[in-house]
Nucleic acid binder design. Sequence first.
DNA 1: CCGATGACGCGCC
DNA 2: GGGCGCGCCATCG
Length: 103
Amino acid sequence: MPTEFEKKVYEITKRIPKGKVSTYKQIAQAMNSKAYRAVGQALHKNPYSPKVPCHRVVRSDGSLGGFALGQRKKAEMLRKEGVIVKKNRVNLKKFLFKEFISS
DNA sequence: CCGATGACGCGCC
DNA sequence: GGGCGCGCCATCG
């Protein structure tokens, strides 16, 4: 059973549009918290497949970060959505989505 | 209750 | 870009 904290994480993650990505820090910030570390934990434990697009969440430096099915798979999914992934890295300048903060 | 853990972030070399 | 160390916070054992 998801904790309140996790529910928030999924809530936010679900808002990330296709073809865009966000960072763990952005999500924490969006829920008015600094637990970016815990955000990662939440996504790791609950890979609610299509419901939560956890593959659209990358690290602040643009690296893919982790993924239950492997970074390789994560990169594939992102490319399929139009995100350019180079050497396990994403160009945040072009694909970072941070508009959900103003909800 | 408390120490260990991790899909993190940031500064520094 | 790669590697190291410290700080961070919710969960887990």
